[in-house]
């Protein structure tokens, strides 16, 4: 149980996928203009990361490893994640057309979101078991979601700022991301195991 808490904290904050590992930058910059869409995107990413962690773990341990085809890891993981994202896209299109339109091109882009592939591969390389992988995936998604929600709230406010024309839009978004990552350096070296009391 404590091991799961350690994974939760380290994946969500200390090794935040966006701000410490700099993965998943494309939707982070792309869907952060509005707080509501960013929240929707976070939920989608939490869901995709958790499901992808579980399914890629099963693929790795019940298909790739027994057949001795671990070298197909990247290809098969991308395939599994792509199928998952299609499924989620259909669900969102049916249940929340507004969110579907707001997410636009970025929802299919989760397919190639390196954070989702990253969490799947990191789970395998950290030798997590099935439950640990699921927690790691959910925590990774939550941390990424926290980052994009903070960022979206900042960007909404930036729309009113007299930023010079050359810096408006993406440039200032990238600079803000850099400063956010610098603030999150405060978590680097955080001893999660001792904090949880392991």
């Amino acid at each position: 149980m404590k091991q799961l808490l350690v994974i939760l904290f380290s994946q969500a904050l200390v090794n935040n996928y966006m701000l410490a590992r700099i993965l998943g930058t494309c939707p982070f910059i792309g869907v952060s203009q509005q707080f509501e869409t960013a929240t929707g995107m976070s939920l989608a990413v939490v869901f995709v990361m958790t499901m992808a962690s579980v399914i890629t773990w099963l693929v790795q341990h019940f298909i790739l490893n027994p057949l001795g085809m671990a070298y197909l890891q990247t290809v098969s993981f991308i395939l599994v994640i792509a199928a998952l994202v299609q499924l989620i896209e259909m669900v969102i299109k049916k249940n929340s057309p507004g969110l579907y339109r707001a997410l636009g091109i970025y929802l299919p882009l989760i397919t190639t979101n390196c954070a989702v592939l990253g969490v799947a591969i990191i789970n395998i390389s950290s030798n997590y078991n099935l439950v640990e992988s699921a927690v790691s995936g959910a925590a990774g998604g939550l941390g990424w979601g926290l980052a994009i929600m903070l960022f979206a709230a900042i960007r909404e406010r930036q729309r009113l700022a007299p930023i010079s024309q050359a810096m408006q839009g993406f440039p200032i978004a990238l600079v803000t991301t850099g400063l956010l990552a610098m603030a999150f350096l405060g978590f680097s070296g955080f001893d999660v195991a001792r904090f949880i009391g392991l």
């Binding site: 406010r157 930036q158 009113l160 700022a161 007299p162 930023i163 810096m167 200032i172 600079v175 400063l179």
Partner: peptide, 15 residues
Amino acid sequence: GIVKLLFGGLGYNVF
């Protein structure tokens, strides 16, 4: 330069 003026000057800096 980076933290204050790029963001629009005094009153608009995030950090």
